[in-house]
Design a binder for these strands. Structure first.
Lengths: 195, 195
DNA sequence: GTCTATAATTCGATAGAC
DNA sequence: GTCTATCGAATTATAGAC
C-alpha cells in the first residue's frame, strides 16, 4: 500500500464537508426561492438540508454569505447568432422558460431581489454582463441603443416570469408553452430588430 | 347652544381617531412599499406615523388586517374607448406610469405580493376585476382570448414596473418617459389588437 | 383614545464540547 | 467536522393603567 496509516494520498482528500456544502446551497436555493430572503431562515435551510444550523454559519459565515453562494447564477445563453434571424426572439423566450423551470436559482434571485439590496445588485450585474452584451452582438446596434433594447427585453421576460411563476396570474398560467413562446417571442423579436 | 351637555349632535361625531387611522394607513403603505411585507414592522410603521405601536393593533387587529387596509387599491383606468384606437396602447402605459409614480400603493402591493400570499391574491383579483374586463371591452374578443391578452399585457407592464422601480436596472432607468410610453405602448397595442 | 409594560416567539450569531 | 447550548436582539401581540 501507499501508506500503512491508510487514507487517501495527498491529492484531493475526500472531505465529507464538500457534500455538506452542496446540500446546504441546494437547500438554500430552495428556501430562498420559496420564501424570499427574509422568509428563508438559517434554521429552515439547515432543516431542509438535514444538518445542524451551526454548520451553515461555519461554512458560509453569515446569511449574506450563504445567499451570495446560493445566488451564483449563469443564464447559459446559447449562441443565438447561429439561428435564422427570424427565430431569435422565440428562441430567447424558450431558453428563459427552460432556465426558469430547470432549477430554483432564478426564482430565488427574483424573490430575494425585490426586498434585498445585495440580491438586487446581483440581478443588475447579471443583466449587465449576460443579457446586455448578447443583445448588442445580436442587434449590431450602438452601445446605448442596444442597452435600451436589452432593458426592454428584460422587462418583458422578467415580467412574464413574475406573472407566471411568482404572482401566478391565472390567465398567464393558462397560456401553453408554445403560445407563450410565440407571442412573447414576437415582442422580443421586435425589441431586438425593429422599433 | 343646542344642548347644555355640549358636544356634537348625534350625526358624525368628530373622533380624532379618524386622522390617526389615516396616518397609520399612509405610513403603512410607505413602509410596505419600501421594505415589503416582512420588512415593514408594526413598530416602523407606528414610528413613521408618529404614534404608538399599540394603536396600530387596536385599529387594525393585526399585521394582516393592516396590510389589507393599506393594499386597498383602484387602478382608476380611464375610459380608453373614447380614444383613437391607435393611441390606446400608449395611453395605457402612460396611465400606469402615472399610477406607479403617484403614490406608494402599487409599489407596496408588488413588493409584498412576491413573498406574501394575501398580497399575491390581492394582485390576482385586481388584474381579474380591473384589467381583464377593460381589455375585453377594448378588444371586443371572446372572453378566453381577451383574458390571454390581458395576461400578456400585464406581464409587459408589471415587468416594466419591476425593472424600473423595483430592480432599478440602469438601462431601464435611462429610458425617458416619452420613449418608454412609445416603445412599450407599441407592444401593448400589439397585444390588444394584433397577434 | 393613547400609551406602558411585558408575554411569547423567533431569529442570527457565538462559544465550546465531542 | 458536527452538534449542543445559549445569548441578545427583534418581532407580533396582549393586558391593563391613565
Amino acid at each position: 500500500m501507499a501508506a500503512t496509516t491508510e487514507g487517501p494520498p495527498a491529492a484531493a482528500p475526500p472531505r465529507r464537508s464538500d457534500a455538506t456544502r452542496a446540500a446546504i446551497v441546494a437547500a438554500a436555493r430552495e428556501q430562498f426561492a420559496a420564501a424570499g430572503y427574509q422568509g428563508a431562515t438559517i434554521r429552515s435551510i439547515a432543516a431542509a438540508a438535514g444538518i445542524d444550523p451551526a454548520l451553515v454559519m461555519r461554512y458560509y459565515g453569515n446569511k449574506e454569505g450563504l445567499f451570495a453562494a446560493a445566488a451564483e447564477f449563469d443564464l447559459r445563453l446559447p449562441d443565438l447568432g447561429a439561428l435564422p434571424r427570424s427565430q431569435v426572439g422565440a428562441a430567447l423566450v424558450s431558453h428563459f422558460l427552460d432556465r426558469w423551470e430547470g432549477d430554483d436559482a432564478l426564482m430565488a434571485l427574483l424573490r430575494a431581489a425585490v426586498t434585498n439590496p445585495a440580491a438586487r445588485q446581483r440581478m443588475q450585474s447579471i443583466f449587465a454582463t449576460q443579457v446586455g452584451p448578447q443583445v448588442g452582438k445580436l442587434s449590431g446596434l450602438p452601445r446605448a441603443e442596444a442597452a435600451a433594447r436589452a432593458g426592454l427585453i428584460s422587462s418583458q421576460i422578467l415580467g412574464l416570469a413574475l406573472c407566471r411563476y411568482v404572482l401566478e396570474l391565472p390567465p398567464v398560467l393558462k397560456l401553453t408553452r408554445a403560445d407563450t413562446v410565440r407571442r412573447v417571442g414576437a415582442t422580443v423579436q421586435r425589441y431586438l430588430f425593429d422599433a
